[in-house]
């Protein structure tokens, strides 16, 4: 049992899950009306967009890079899905476009970062601008709304009487599949590249290809999140997805994925996504205006990144000092 506790507490996403539960409990203590099944399940049901974005970007973060173009990609595929939904189109073309837009953006990012070795923040900031521009051109600046009923109804439908959203159920399946895949030896390439790229190359891991693949995955997940966004909210403004990349990064960090790469798990990203999307709801129950949303998220993000950096530095420094002390002590006697 002790072994089990030790092992489980070493898994980073477990602390994220505990953090999420703590948030729920605190909110419930301050405002007992929060403690209802429908409130809590709604937190999960509404998290699908952030979960998809966070899972996607977690691949690039694991490899030690970043992708800030995902918000724009989401905005574009949401607009495309919206237009298809207006014409009462089916899911298939939406999915096709989402994957295409995501993959192409990912490809461009991959060329820039993995092949041309441009710093990833700068390069993806550039693609972000380009894609955001395409959204304006594509929509002509108009808000896209009045979708066919079935489209929005599906986005908010639940499984039987359980209250569990269809999208959320799909998310659980996706996360489970990815978690298993990432635990295979090839799946671990992402973490290996982020942990020590030089070492990865030396043991024969195709580091460039891995980064490329991470960007394509990041793009595709962002693309798919656009469909979910359109279906859930039924209205796409031209700024849809603006700033979502920051929330996705925050979700990853909250989920225990190290921004310096090499550490983390998609389960953590998914839990982080739930935390990020729940905060505005929790704030309402805590009696804050939703105007505080961004500020509080920002503070939380900074706090966690600082704690993470400090504990890591400390661990490294302590290990170094211990080694040095041991070395000097050998001949002390």
């Amino acid at each position: 049992m002790k072994e089990f506790i030790k092992k489980i507490s070493g898994v980073r996403w477990v602390s994220s899950l505990l953090f999420l539960i703590a948030l729920f409990v605190i909110t419930g203590i301050v405002n007992p009306t929060f403690f209802s099944y429908s409130n809590i399940i709604a937190c999960f049901n509404n998290s699908c967009v952030f979960m998809l974005l966070a899972i996607g970007i977690s691949f690039t973060i694991m490899t030690g890079e970043i992708d800030v173009s995902i918000g724009a990609v989401m905005g574009l595929t949401a607009a495309i899905s919206g237009v298809i939904a207006q014409q009462n189109g089916s899911w298939l073309p939406m999915l096709g476009w989402a994957v295409l837009v995501g993959a192409v953006t990912g490809l461009v990012n991959g060329i820039g970062v993995a092949v041309l070795k441009v710093p990833s923040l700068i390069f993806t900031l550039g693609t972000c601008g380009v894609v955001r521009g395409i959204v304006y051109i594509y929509t002509g600046g108009r808000t896209i709304e009045n979708f066919s009923g079935s489209f929005t109804r599906f986005g908010n439908s639940t499984v039987g009487n359980t209250g569990i959203g269809v999208f959320f159920l799909m998310m659980i399946v996706i996360v489970a599949v990815l978690a298993v895949l990432l635990n295979t030896r090839r799946g671990k390439y992402f973490l290996a590249v982020g942990d020590n790229i030089g070492g990865a190359v030396l043991v024969g891991i195709p580091a460039t290809r891995v980064k490329f693949f991470a960007y394509i995955l990041s793009g595709i997940f962002a693309g798919i999140s656009g469909i979910v966004f359109a279906s859930k909210y039924g209205q796409i403004t031209i700024i849809a997805g603006n700033g979502y990349e920051m929330s996705a990064v925050a979700a990853c960090v909250l989920g225990g994925i190290s921004l310096s790469g090499g550490l983390g798990n998609v389960i953590g990203a998914a839990i982080g996504g739930v935390i990020m999307s729940s905060i505005s709801r929790l704030l309402v129950f805590l009696g804050f205006s939703s105007d505080y949303d961004n500020t509080i998220t920002g503070v939380m993000l900074i706090a966690i990144v600082v704690i993470d950096a400090l504990t890591q530095q400390r661990a490294i420094e302590n290990a170094r000092r211990e080694r040095l002390l041991a070395r000097a002590a050998v001949s002390g006697q």
């Binding site: 671990k188 290996a192 070492g199 990865a200 043991v203 550490l263």
Partner: peptide, 13 residues
């Protein structure tokens, strides 16, 4: 790979 254990380090790739 500092964040991986010895076995993972050796068997990677």
């Amino acid at each position: 790979f500092p964040n991986m254990n010895v076995l993972e380090n050796i068997t990677m790739g």
